[in-house]
């Protein structure tokens, strides 16, 4: 089982390194979206500091969603997905591995670059730290929930827009508590509850989302 997980993870990483542009596109998208806000709302640092948590989180949400289309699409096209379906290991474990690699390639870079962007928007050190923690807890949830949507819209006409319509409403709780925690840290309020809830989302999504995504893939390949 672990051998399969390791080799699948290795394969995903190799593919990503061979096609660096895709990983970088998501990252640049994140940076550009965040950079647009100071241009749009004006460079007053107080305003920027106030909207920073929301801006960073919404940008992270969109960036993570942007790459979801590709999560299963290539494997679907070249038949790899069917082989996974036939494999003796449970599909949900394989799906979880794919989600993990998706997060490592899109979620984690976002988390790593977010302090730089947060600093540009005038967040102080403590808020930056909290933001990194919330993004670390939250972005895996985005990949997990997104995988269910990616499975449901696999090979569907206009899949990209539809995926956004299906998934964004489900992202809302993560957005609320993620940006809420940063906002609370910025104004010096209690953040424990926000972080606990994000942790709950992560645990629940970790358990349920792979099963849901596997079911969605089975429906898609039926």
């Amino acid at each position: 089982m672990f051998a399969v997980i390791r080799s699948l993870l290795w394969r995903e990483m190799t593919l990503a390194i061979r096609r660096r542009a895709e990983v970088l596109t998501t990252l640049f998208f994140f940076v550009i979206v965040v950079s647009l806000f100071p241009l749009g709302v004006g460079p007053e640092i107080d305003t920027l500091r106030e909207i920073a948590p929301g801006v960073l989180w919404v940008a992270a949400l969109l960036a993570s969603m942007l790459s979801l289309n590709r999560l299963f699409a290539d494997d679907y096209m070249d038949g790899t997905l069917e082989q996974m379906l036939l494999a003796s290991q449970p599909l949900s474990i394989l799906v979880l591995t794919k989600i993990l690699s998706h997060w490592l390639l899109t979620g984690l870079p976002l988390v790593l670059i977010s302090p730089v962007l947060g600093m540009q928007l005038g967040l102080d050190m403590e808020s930056l730290l909290i933001m990194v923690v919330t993004l670390l807890l939250g972005t895996p949830v985005l990949s997990l929930i997104g995988a269910v949507g990616a499975g449901l819209t696999l090979g569907v006409r206009g899949g990209g827009v539809l995926l956004a319509l299906l998934i964004l409403p489900l992202y809302v709780p993560v957005l609320i508590f993620g940006s809420g925690a940063v906002e609370a840290a910025r104004t010096g309020m209690e953040i424990q509850a926000h972080l606990s809830l994000l942790g709950i989302f992560l645990v629940l999504a970790l358990v349920l989302a792979p099963i849901g995504a596997a079911k969605a893939l089975k429906i898609a390949l039926d």
């Binding site: 569907v156 206009g158 539809l162 429906i219 039926d222």
Partner: peptide, 30 residues
């Protein structure tokens, strides 16, 4: 939005069997 997503997913998939199963799963997630 969940209702609208259910309806759009259902109409986006051509095969009716697959459409109803996929949207059923979406409804359960929601």
């Amino acid at each position: 939005f969940l209702y609208l997503g259910f309806i759009s997913l259902n109409s986006a998939i051509d095969d009716p069997r697959r459409a109803s199963r996929a949207s059923a799963l979406l409804a359960l997630v929601g």
